[in-house]
Design a protein around this nucleic acid. Structure first.
Lengths: 134, 134
DNA sequence: ACTTTATTCTACCTACGTATGGTATATTTA
DNA sequence: TAAATATACCATACGTAGGTAGAATAAAGT
């Protein structure tokens, strides 16, 4: 019961970028600041840039910068961009036929907790998550 | 954010066995009833038997049977036997230095939800999870 | 204008863990 | 002895994580 590493990386990067919304960072700098493997991060940033959550500039002095609309970028979007959101509507025991009408024995208990997590990721924006460590 | 498949399998099996606490089942029967790959399930059952949560009998007409103390077998034990419990005390962003004193920006929100999940797995026993589909 | 430099982008390649299957052997008991 | 099952070991598939190499891009230096 945990995020994929890639998802952790993605949220870490986005939180960092959101903390310096005017600045542009190269992959190399992000790699050093956030302790994420350089090449892996490169591909991740490319993926994130394609969703529009970060803006990219190529060439010398290029790099990545968060999209200015911090309060429009939700955690669920970051998670959805990397590991998807299927798990948040899934039976915890993997029963395909599990539903409110035909519940598995953990259905209700898990539903409540899962909804609390969804409430978190669907209501938290990057504007809520800035962190200044400078 | 999900269980490993193996963890799902383990809980499925334990819930099934707990529903027929007097009966002994062969791997082959469990495999067919629960739609879990035969060979994989064999090893999983062996693992589970070593924790004492299920009792094993070999030979013709042998098989697995849940330990009779249904109300003493907690969900966290089943989860711990397969994928471990480390993730339930882990920073959601993977910051090693994250703590109550030095929280990551998601610390408090995640802590509350994570504790709700822990509350579930530490308070639910197999006695709460029987299901009769016969 | 040409070259160098710093950067992203793209396409493979490697490592590793989880999930799964195959085959052989050991154990029990009808 | 034979059938049913457990146990052990080896092989395969697959997804995630991480690395290598070079092409494309764009700025800066000459």
């Amino acid at each position: 019961m945990r995020f994929q590493k890639t998802t952790e990386y993605a949220i870490r990067v986005m939180v960092f970028l959101a903390s310096y919304p005017e600045q542009r960072f190269s992959v190399n700098v992000l790699h050093k600041k956030l302790n994420i493997p350089y090449k892996y991060l490169g591909r991740l940033m490319h993926t994130l840039s394609q969703t529009g959550m970060v803006e990219v500039e190529q060439g010398k002095h290029g790099g990545y910068k968060v999209n200015s609309n911090l309060d429009k970028i939700y955690l669920y979007q970051v998670i959805g961009a990397v590991e998807g959101l299927e798990n948040y509507d899934r039976c915890i025991l993997g029963f395909p036929e599990c539903s409110d009408e035909n519940p598995c024995p953990l259905h209700k208990a898990w539903l409540e907790r899962r909804e609390a997590i969804k409430e978190m990721i669907y209501n938290t924006t990057l504007a809520d998550l800035t962190v200044n460590t400078q």
